[in-house]
C-alpha cells in the first residue's frame, strides 16, 4: 500500500487517502480515480538548465522516472551534486535514488523538482550517512499546478553524523514531501527546515518523522509558510524519543501566515516520548500578518503592497538564512522573492 506500488500496479485503490491517518489532509485516493499510463521516456539533452546546475560538481537527472540514480561519497571526500527530478506530460512514473556518504564525507545535494503537465510522480530516496559524515540537502520543488508529486526520503544517520535539510516548495495539485529520519543519538545532529509559498489552488504537504533511538541526539526543526487564494498547506511533524534515548534535545516550530479568507493550513506537530531525561518542545502558530508592523511600515511611507511583501519576506527569511551553502541560499532567496512579489 504505497504510492510507488500504486504506480507500478496502476491500481488506484492502493493510493493512500484521508482514511489513512498520515494522509488525512493529502487525499490521493479521492483525487485520482485512475492511475495514468506510464510516462514516456524523455530526451534529457533537450531539457532546459536546472536551477542549481551552475553550483554543482556533478549533475544527475531523473527524467520521468528514468535513470535510477546513485550518489556515492568516498571517505573524507567533499562534493556538491545537483539532483534534478524532471516530470513531463500526463503519465505516471516512480524513481529511486540512493545516497551513500562514507566516513567523514561531505555532501551537498541540490535537489530540484521540475514539472510540466498533469503527471503523477513518485520519488523514493534512501540516504545513509556514516560516522562523521556531513550532508546538506536543499530541495526546491517547482511542480506544475496540475501535477501530483510524492517525494519520500528515508535518512539513516550514524553517530556523529550531521544532516541538514531545507525544503522549499510552491506546491502542486497535490504534493507531499516526506522525510523520515532514524536518529541514532550519539551526538548526531539533525536540522529539518521547510518553507512553503502557496497560491491559487495549490497544495503542499511537508511531513517529517524523526525517531531518536539512543542518547545524546539533537533535532532542530523550523518550518514557515505563506498561503493565499485557495491554497492549502499541510505540516505534519513527528518526533519520537525511544525508551532510553536520554539527553535528547528536540525542538520543532511551525509558523504559517494565511493571506486570504479561503486558504487553509492544517498542522499536526506531534511528540511521542518514552524517556524522561529529555528536553522536547514544539510551537505552532497560524495567523495573519501583524497589523501593528504593517501599520508601522505604512506610516513610514511604504505602499501597503510593498510593506506586506517586505514583512512576508522577513518572515520566511529566517528559514532561508539557516541554509549553509551560500550559492544555493541565493538561488532560493531569489525564488522566494519572485513568488512574494517583492
Amino acid at each position: 500500500m504505497s504510492v510507488a506500488s500504486a504506480i507500478k500496479t496502476r491500481d488506484a485503490a492502493e493510493l493512500p487517502g484521508k482514511r489513512d491517518e498520515d494522509w488525512r489532509w493529502t487525499d490521493l485516493r479521492g483525487l485520482i480515480r485512475q492511475v495514468p499510463a506510464p510516462s514516456a521516456a524523455l530526451d534529457v539533452a533537450s531539457l532546459p538548465a536546472g536551477p542549481f546546475d551552475a553550483l554543482a560538481d556533478e549533475l544527475l537527472v531523473v527524467a520521468n522516472g528514468q535513470g535510477a540514480a546513485h550518489i556515492g561519497v568516498e571517505p573524507g571526500e567533499t562534493k556538491v551534486v545537483a539532483l534534478r527530478i524532471v516530470s513531463r506530460g500526463d503519465g505516471s512514473h516512480a524513481a529511486r535514488v540512493s545516497v551513500d556518504v562514507e566516513v567523514a564525507g561531505n555532501l551537498t545535494i541540490l535537489e530540484s523538482y521540475e514539472g510540466e503537465g498533469a503527471y503523477l510522480g513518485q520519488t523514493g530516496l534512501i540516504l545513509s550517512l556514516a560516522k562523521d559524515a556531513v550532508v546538506e540537502r536543499i530541495i526546491l520543488a517547482a511542480d506544475d499546478a496540475e501535477g501530483v508529486t510524492v517525494s519520500q526520503a528515508q535518512v539513516d544517520l550514524a553517530p556523529g553524523a550531521s544532516f541538514a535539510q531545507t525544503v522549499l516548495t510552491g506546491g502542486a495539485r497535490r504534493q507531499r514531501l516526506e522525510t523520515i529520519v532514524r536518529h541514532p543519538g550519539g551526538h548526531a545532529d539533525l536540522r529539518l527546515d521547510g518553507v512553503y509559498l502557496l497560491a491559487d489552488k495549490r497544495h503542499a504537504d511537508l511531513t517529517t518523522s524523526v525517531t531518536h533511538a539512543a542518547v545524546d541526539g539533537t533535532t532542530q526543526q523550523l518550518t514557515k509558510g505563506v498561503v493565499r487564494d485557495q491554497a492549502r498547506a499541510v505540516f505534519q511533524g513527528k518526533i519520537i524519543v525511544a525508551e532510553g534515548a536520554d539527553r535528547t534535545d528536540a525542538r520543532m516550530g511551525h509558523h504559517a501566515l494565511i493571506l486570504s479568507d479561503r486558504a487553509e493550513v492544517d498542522a499536526k506537530p506531534e511528540l511521542e516520548i518514552y524517556a524522561d531525561d529529555v528536553s522536547c518542545a514544539h510551537g505552532n502558530t497560524v495567523g495573519a500578518l501583524d497589523e501593528d508592523a504593517l501599520f508601522y511600515a505604512r506610516q513610514r511611507g511604504m505602499p501597503e503592497a510593498v510593506a506586506r511583501a517586505l514583512l512576508t519576506e522577513a518572515f520566511i527569511g529566517e528559514v532561508i538564512d539557516r541554509i549553509d551553502h551560500e550559492g544555493a541560499r541565493d538561488v532560493v532567496r531569489a525564488w522566494a522573492a519572485e513568488r512574494l512579489g517583492a
Binding site: I258, V265, D266, T285
Partner: peptide
C-alpha cells in the same frame, strides 16, 4: 490544527 480563514489566530 485546521485553520480555514485568514483572520484567525492560533497559537500552540
Amino acid at each position: 490544527i485546521e485553520a480555514r480563514n485568514g483572520q484567525s489566530k492560533f497559537e500552540h
